[in-house]
Write a protein that binds this DNA or RNA. Structure first.
Length: 500
RNA sequence: GGCCCCAUCGUCUAGGGGACCAGGACGCGGCCCUCUCAAGGCCGAAACGGGGGUUCGAAUCCCCCUGGGGCCA
């Protein structure tokens, strides 16, 4: 009955159409972005269409602002879609709240065919039922009380309240098999399934129903979604059959986990694409990283261009096990892309860093050309230390604001009796000289060290702390040149005051 | 509680009966480079959850257990 898919069958004549169906109840989650990416890859690989559908039936939690933010982040990632709420298409509307008439129509079709029935139980009664079942450690299933009401009973109840609509499922009579492109055949026995509500008494549709109606009406050929929906699939298949529809092919992706091995949650760090965007990650790095969760296009290789990923994508190659999201590896990968951009397109790195500086309030819009040029210089000096945009702050904040002394650094290099005098002497030397460029800075520092008969390190380390507040960072002479003589001299003298 | 899914280094994974005393990457440790850090180079520690089978032979196939995850308006 449900066998039309077949694992080994090539994608058939049906045009490939995939979709990302998210709820606009917050920012785009990395798990959602990951699923969206695989849908996008599959569609692009097959020259098909990628569709965005907004599942906003939960009106209390859905917002337009969230929808906008999600679309914006998807676009930022580069996952352009062919149809969606903002650009329309032949299968719209693309928001579920605009499709209620369709759900009502098919719910009634189900009712007429006897595949669904009206249920007059109240949410309170049902909740109480569940509580009792839980207390006795019994399966939490619907009693079926309204399944076979007589016309008279129904009329009596209808006089009092509006019914919900339930799908008839528990007495379906035979096993339901899901053919999953990743997992193979998964069989469910309807005895363990429950008559479930497809339309609430207030008329709003539930996920398992709206999803089926939309996927069918939008001619979705491949439903690629998280494994949390695998148990929903048999319930959905019953609707396809009752309505005489051919179901799409299914592929259930593993669920991305946090380092606690639980579903990725905010407690353990950033989980929204927006978080990474703000911190100065590159979209192509994010996508490359996503590709390596649950999939390895080739052996012994991690860096791929988008084109390569599109060309290689095969849904059968996806893994079944749930990957743990590892931000450290993402950061490493972003560094690879940043270094590459530094060589081929430094303007991009500047752009990413600029955004961080603006967000931090260290620069304000509009950014003047000379400010931008200054940032370009800082980026050049910081070089491959910039693994993510926000590294401009971790390694170079002192280029944009007064020095903040790292306590450990100060303790190690400024709390020495001879340092106060040494920094003053360096300031004196620099003040005497002309322009402060790399060579002049080096000459002054090395000259001072030689004069004192000490290693240049003895001057360099305290000077770095004096100028930057840190022990780590760009080369001293480069940063001195960029800082310029007035700031260098002032900071050396100020640090001398603190020292000793 | 019921049903379903999953299981190789800390993490992402390669592996689909002999090519594996298990390969790559991140992270971690050491060394080199060096004014520090970063990058880079070299080296290293680090895994087939357990138990039964099948087989001449199992990380690879089957079963059980254990563990993790998901669904049950």
């Amino acid at each position: 009955m449900y066998t039309k898919t077949g694992l080994e069958s090539e994608v058939n004549a049906v045009p490939v159409r995939t979709r990302y169906a998210g709820s606009p109840t917050g920012l785009l989650h990395v798990g959602g972005a990951w699923a969206a990416f695989f849908n996008w890859l599959f569609a692009r690989h097959h020259g098909g269409a990628f569709i965005i559908r907004v599942e906003d039936t939960d009106r209390t939690r859905s917002t337009e602002e969230s929808e906008r933010a999600i679309l914006e982040d998807l676009r930022w990632l580069g996952l352009e879609w062919d149809e969606g709420p903002d650009r329309g298409g032949a299968y719209g509307p693309y928001r579920q709240t605009e499709r209620f008439a369709l759900y009502a129509r098919y719910a009634h079709a189900l009712l007429e065919r006897g595949a669904a029935y009206e249920c007059y139980c109240t949410p309170e009664e049902l909740e109480a039922e569940r509580q009792r079942a839980r207390a006795r450690q019994l399966p939490q299933r619907y009693s079926g009380r309204c399944r076979d009401l007589s016309a008279a009973q129904r009329a009596a109840l209808a006089a009092q309240r509006r019914p919900a609509i339930r799908l008839r499922l528990a007495d379906f009579g035979r096993a339901i098999a899901v053919w999953d492109l990743i997992r193979g055949r998964v069989e469910f026995s309807p005895q363990h399934l429950d008559d479930y509500i497809i339309i609430r008494s207030d008329g709003t549709p539930l996920y398992n129903f709206a999803n089926v109606v939309d996927d069918h009406l939008m001619a979705i050929s491949h439903v690629i979604r998280g494994a949390e929906h695998l148990s929903n699939t048999p319930k959905q298949l019953v609707i396809y059959e009752a309505l005489g529809w051919t179901p799409p092919q299914f592929a259930h992706l593993p669920v991305i986990l946090g380092t606690d091995r639980k579903k990725l949650s905010k407690r353990l760090g950033d989980t929204a694409v927006r978080d990474y965007r703000r911190r100065g990650y590159l979209p192509e790095a994010l996508l490359n990283f996503f590709a390596l969760m649950g999939w390895y296009p080739e052996e012994d290789r991690e860096i791929y261009s988008l084109e390569e990923l599109v060309a290689r994508f095969r849904i059968e190659d996806l893994g079944k096990a749930s990957p743990v999201f590892d931000p450290a590896k993402l950061t490493w990968m972003n560094g690879v892309y940043m270094r590459r951009a530094l060589e081929t397109d430094p303007g991009r790195v500047v752009q990413v860093c600029l955004a961080v500086l603006l967000a931090e309030g260290l620069l304000a819009e509009p950014v003047a050309p000379e400010q931008r040029a200054y940032v370009e210089q800082v980026v050049r000096v910081l070089g491959d230390r910039l693994k993510v945009g926000e590294d401009i702050l971790t390694y170079g904040d002192f280029f944009f604001r007064e020095v903040t002394f790292d306590p450990a650094a100060e303790q190690q290099y400024l709390r020495r009796p001879e340092v106060r005098e040494l920094l003053r002497a360096l300031a004196d030397r620099l003040e005497r000289d002309g322009a402060l460029n790399h060579a002049a800075a080096e000459a002054a520092v090395r000259g001072l060290a030689q004069e004192r008969g000490i290693h240049s390190r003895e001057v360099i380390h305290p000077a770095r702390v004096a100028l930057t507040g840190k022990t780590a960072g760009p080369g001293l002479f480069e940063l001195m040149e960029l800082l310029g003589r007035p700031r260098v001299v002032a900071r050396l003298r100020a640090a001398a005051e603190r020292a000793g």
